[in-house]
Nucleic acid binder design. Sequence first.
DNA 1: ATAGCGACGCTTTTT
DNA 2: GCGTCGCTAT
Length: 748
Amino acid sequence: MAFTQILNDKQNEAVYMTEGPLLILAGAGSGKTRVITNRIAYMIDDGINPYNILAITFTNKAASEMRQRVDDMVGFGSKSIWVSTFHSMCVRILRREIEALDYDSRFTIYDTDDQKTVIKNVVKRMNLDPKFYPEKQILSIISNAKERFVGPEDYKKEAGTSIRDQKIAAIYEAYQEQLKKSNALDFDDLLFKTVELFQFNPDILDRYQERFKYIMVDEYQDTNHIQFLLISQLARKYRNLCVVGDDDQSIYKFRGANIYNILNFEEEYPDAKVIKLEQNYRSTKNILAAANGVIAHNRGRKVKALWADSEEGQKIAFHQYENDHIEAEQTVWQIRKLFQDGYSYRDVAILYRTNAQSRLFEEKLLMANIPYKIVGGLNFYSRKEIKDMISYLKVIDNGSDDLCTRRIINVPKRGIGATSVEKAADFAYGNQMTLMEAFYNVEHIPGISRAAAKIKKFTELIDDFKQEAESGESISTLYQNILEETGYLEELELEGTDEAEARIENLEELKNKIVQYEESAEEPTLSGLLEEIALVADIDTVDDEEDRVLLMTLHSAKGLEFPVVYMAGMEEGIFPSAMAMYSDHPDDDIEEERRLCYVGITRAKKRLFMSAAMQRMTRGNIQANAISRFVKEIPPELMDTAGNAVRRDTVRNTVERPQVKPVFAKPVSRGSKVFSNGGTAYMGSKGAEIKKADHLEYSVGDMVKHIKFGKGEVVDITDKGKDYEVTVDFETHGRRKLFASFAKLKKV
DNA sequence: ATAGCGACGCTTTTT
DNA sequence: GCGTCGCTAT
């Protein structure tokens, strides 16, 4: 085959086996993406209509990359292949078919925040005490049920008989009713409704079975039950199902991923062929050996032996620092050194267990003027101002969304208070109409008099926007008009605070995204834009061309690779998390954490750095954590702890120390008490040394310039021994203390 | 109706 | 340590 890249025997076998069920067990870095793309290319070359191929990936980013690669190889037809995530695929199907389930095809998609609000409203309406029915818990119960394809009626039957259990079942039922009324689907519904659709409409299912004669699913180890059902439905007729995964990389049990989907594939499909890809093309021998050393501590794995032909590479560096600040500072310092040695910033990723850990790294990177990008954490689209504007767009697009109506009715302030809104909501509820419909009938709502005129004005405003949208005005113009005509922008501008300024910047960023969408979409529509916004993950927007350090959780790093990887916070109670250590099934949960560690290690191609802090501030308390067991599971001969006061023998001897249950759940004191997480604290190392400048080109009283903070006056310079600490009064960013060697201040 | 303040809960991980 | 929520005072 002209287009075929050079593949090893196993990879070739996987490429050519296009008929029947096939399980590819692909170890980390074993060239999985290469196999999938080559397989698709081969199928097309072999005469299979690209129209009949469905490939499901984990992220939208992976989907577009795959499409691009197939396109590069085949040159035609890749457009008619369906490459998408589970969720986008379901939306696409439901937009065409959901009327069979008596929904409107213009449904909106609710995110987690929206779900919580609905639950809160439902609980309130049912006169239940929110304290006994916390939305987060209810949400996870509902989500869990939906992932098992258990609807409200079935849940009622399977739930316990206690009052609480029955109430929860009732909340689920009311929640689902509310969503239906708002013509909305939550993330889980996208899958649930698709499976339901196929189950009750064999003719529709048949159409899709005929379409998707060849199905491929990537990251199969992270599929949950309902995804399994969906795939089973589609593949039942032709049985050309190829799943690719690695049981050692299953890290999403918390959202219902069922590792048995992959472990039991051969039982489900007895005629399945199994191909193992065990040669790693990504990492050095040392890194791979470290990964193998860690994962070997798990039981119940498929037998696999990853090996590499690569160079030995450098040892894995481990540092334990005095505290979390020093950890971040030294990591940043090391990255600077790597940069001086010729690495690019984009070669480097800092990985951590929880999003909260990103803050210090961000702070220190900013001080050091190193470009960075944080993936995940507080989502751009969950910021208040962004949600407000999107709510306007949603209400204009589809007025049945009560949540959004509620959100914007008095934003910016129009003098329509909570009491008036509640009266309208009661009226809407009693008359089986949407909140927006109630507003249109405001003269019939009992108890509203003074606010009626204001509500009338609001509905007229929305009508104007609707007309604009229908008149073929571009979405970005509509957006700009909303910002101006509602007075939203003006209100922020008048505030004049830094915070308001940041919000305005975000609103401008949203406009950029809208313009971007209008330029890239074949047929840009308001609904299309809103849909894209709902399903885009943060990782999807990462631009590989940008030269910056990437910061993200270990979960987000799945499927990616970097020349240099830092794994920070390698501490008991952080990683493995305290949640896992003290859960009801600690063995299972620790194994999942260990797989997460395996994922992290195998992201690294050339260099792997690990670090821990002796003391760390968590939720306002200072904790002292022992070094993570995962560090100790790496064979010592692979580790470089030079310059580190931690001795290997000390490290290894602490494995069996009795654990003290930490007081993390309900701290006795809110002060700065030190809680021990078991194990011993060690003398930390100072790590790399900061190069102190011989002299500074500025002195107290001088005006200096900082790349991020702008101009400011030097008010103090202190010799801190290893470096100068410079205090600067910035014109726009206030007084800040900076380290001279990091901040690179320029005299002006 | 709204601004301002204190209490509280939170941190696992995400489509 | 930080953001959200609810209560109170205006």
